[in-house]
Computed example of a mutant assay.
Amino acid sequence: MSLLVETIKLKDGTFYNLDYHTKRFNRSRFELFGVKKEIDLKDVLQLSNFPTSGLFKTRIIYDEKIVKIEFEEYQIKHIEKLKMVVNNNITYPYKFLNRQAFETIKKKLSKNEEAIIVKNGFITDTTFSNLAFYDGQNWFTPNTYLLNGTKRQFYIDKKLLLESTITLHDLRKFLKVSLINTMLDIAEIEISTENILLSNQNSV
C-alpha cells in the first residue's frame, strides 16, 4: 500500500486548520491500518524544526506511524483555463502519496491549464484541489468529490460552502469557479466559467 501524506499550510510560523488535519490523519490510520492510538499533529509539529517566516507547504508522510516531515516553500500556481477530462475509473478516497492517476491527467494539459475531472457525468475535483462554483449569490461544491479536503470541510462546517450535485450541464448556472485546498482559500484562484473548455473532452 502507498504511503499517505497530510499537507498543512504553514505561514509565518503558524500551522492552519490543524484540528481537521489531525482528524483525517487519525481516521486514515484507523481505517487503513487498524491503528486506534491517536496522534495529535499539533504536538508533533511543535517539536519539528519548522520555518517561522514565509509561506510553506508542510508534508507529513505516514503509514501506521509518521515516516518524515517536510517543509516546502509555496507559490500559487498560475492557471488561466480549466479543461474537462473524463475518467470514469479514478478513485482517491485517501490522501495517498502515490498520485499516478493525477500525473497521467496532467500530461494532457497545456501550460497554465488545469483539469476538472468528470466521473460518470459528474464534476469531481481538479488534480490538486476541490472545487467551489459561484452562482452570483452562493458558493457550491460537488458532492461527488474524489477526496474530501480539509479546507472544503472547513467551509461546509462554517456554512460558507454548500454541497450540491453538479453535472456538466449545470455549469451554465455558475459565473466562476474557485480552486480550494489546504493552501488555497476561496477566491485565491478564480476562473470564469467561460474559460472552462467543454469541447474535445479527453478520456483517460
Results as ranks from 00 to 15, higher is better:
N143G: 05
L162V: 15
R152Y: 05
R152C: 05
D157W: 04
I156T: 10
L184N: 01
L179P: 09
L184K: 00
T150M: 03
Q137C: 01
G136R: 04
D135S: 12
D125T: 02
I180N: 03
L171D: 15
K151Y: 04
I166W: 05
N148D: 09
Q137A: 08
R152L: 06
Y145A: 10
Y145K: 13
N130F: 01
F154M: 14
D185G: 05
T150G: 08
L175H: 12
L131Y: 03
S178E: 09
T167K: 08
T165L: 05
K158V: 12
R152F: 09
N143E: 09
L175C: 06
F154A: 13
S129N: 04
L147M: 06
Y145V: 11
I186V: 12
Q137D: 03
E188S: 07
D170I: 12
F140V: 00
F133L: 14
K151G: 04
G149M: 08
L146K: 04
A132Q: 11
T141G: 10
Q137P: 01
T127P: 00
G136T: 02
P142I: 09
T141E: 05
D170F: 07
N148C: 11
Q153N: 13
N148F: 06
L175T: 07
Y145T: 12
M183Y: 00
F140R: 04
Q153L: 11
K173G: 08
K159C: 14
G136F: 00
Q153H: 03
F133E: 08
P142F: 03
S178I: 07
L147D: 02
D135E: 09
I186S: 10
M183R: 02
Y145H: 05
E188H: 02
E163C: 08
P142C: 07
T182E: 03
A187K: 08
S164R: 11
T141M: 04
H169Q: 15
F140K: 00
R152A: 10
K151F: 10
D157Y: 02
D135I: 10
L160I: 12
T141P: 07
I189A: 02
Q153F: 01
R172D: 15
L171E: 13
W139A: 11
E163L: 12
I189K: 03
F154K: 15
T150I: 04
A132P: 11
L184H: 00
L162P: 04
L184F: 02
A132I: 10
S178L: 09
N148P: 03
L146Q: 08
T144N: 11
D157T: 07
T150Y: 03
L179E: 06
F174A: 08
L161D: 12
D157S: 07
T141S: 12
L162D: 10
L146V: 05
D157E: 15
L171R: 14
N181W: 00
I189G: 03
T167D: 05
